[in-house]
């Protein structure tokens, strides 16, 4: 089985977010980057499937060279090789086009990625890739098994789960608890150095969107403590100040 796992390179969940150039650029200074947590789960499940059933895992990332440490980490966790499309991703359509282009050349059985990135959170790349390749796509997938060339999986739906079966090839957007989150071990880190990381140039895509500006949410207000005996005051404040009732 040939598995393609697409990973994002995103700011650490604790990173302080700020913008430069008149709020049109994300300020990368001092920000730690990580593999997107949902992508991390997709990769972990791919490694589990490979350990159980054999196969190969290729990691794909659309981004510039500053993502290489995260790609090496994915190789250390258990991917066999990696491809980086050398470009600054513009939007979801742009990224999906690059992924689809790579996938068309290699015929993967399974294309896994996170349900969404945790920076722009669009959550549409898996759907777009499926459409572009003309194969089914599902998200958010929280359980996945492969039996006799078929995928048996569970998807989270409003208020419950949906159990599905589909033939390969497939595109799946993943989330926990699809796999046990993995920490690379020392041997994996050492072998990652010698695994191939191929850098390819992007295919051209027409600009479909352009970014105007970013804005941060309003800073959190002071926390007001209201004693239990004054519960009525809480109701008044929720009505008059917070205006949520």
């Amino acid at each position: 089985m040939k598995i393609l796992v697409c990973i994002t390179n995103v700011p650490d969940t604790t990173a302080k977010i700020s913008f430069t150039d008149n709020n049109t650029k994300f300020n990368k200074a001092g920000v730690q980057y990580i593999i997107g947590p949902y992508d991390d789960y997709a990769l972990a499940r791919a490694v589990e499937l490979k350990e159980a059933q054999g196969g190969t895992i290729t990691v794909l990332h659309v981004g510039e060279a500053d993502s290489d440490p995260q790609i090496r980490k994915a190789l250390a966790i258990g991917a066999d090789d990696a491809i980086r499309v050398n470009t600054e991703p513009a939007d979801s359509y742009y990224v999906a086009t690059q992924i689809a282009h790579i996938a068309q050349q290699n015929s993967y059985d399974l294309i896994l990625m996170g349900r969404e990135s945790i920076d722009f959170n669009s959550g549409v790349v898996h759907g777009l890739v499926g459409e572009m390749l003309g194969i089914p796509s599902f998200s958010p997938v929280m359980k996945l098994d492969i039996k006799d060339g078929k995928a048996e999986f569970a998807r989270e739906i409003d208020g419950g789960k949906e159990y599905l079966e589909a033939t390969l090839p497939l595109v799946l957007g993943c989330q926990e608890p699809i796999a046990e989150w993995k920490i690379p071990n020392m041997r994996g880190i050492m072998t990652a150095r010698t695994k191939p990381l191929q850098v390819v140039e992007p295919v051209s895509v027409d600009d479909m969107t352009s970014l105007e500006s970013y804005s941060l949410p309003a800073p959190k207000g002071e926390c007001k403590m209201i004693p239990v005996e004054e519960a009525e005051k809480l109701i008044t404040l929720l009505r008059t100040e917070a205006k949520v009732l």
Binding site: A76, I183, R193
Partner: peptide, 20 residues
Amino acid sequence: MITETAENQTLIEQTVRDFA
């Protein structure tokens, strides 16, 4: 430029941090 040693060391530090 990130040397191979430095990249390894960063990965080891991340592994240890995540584990701890």
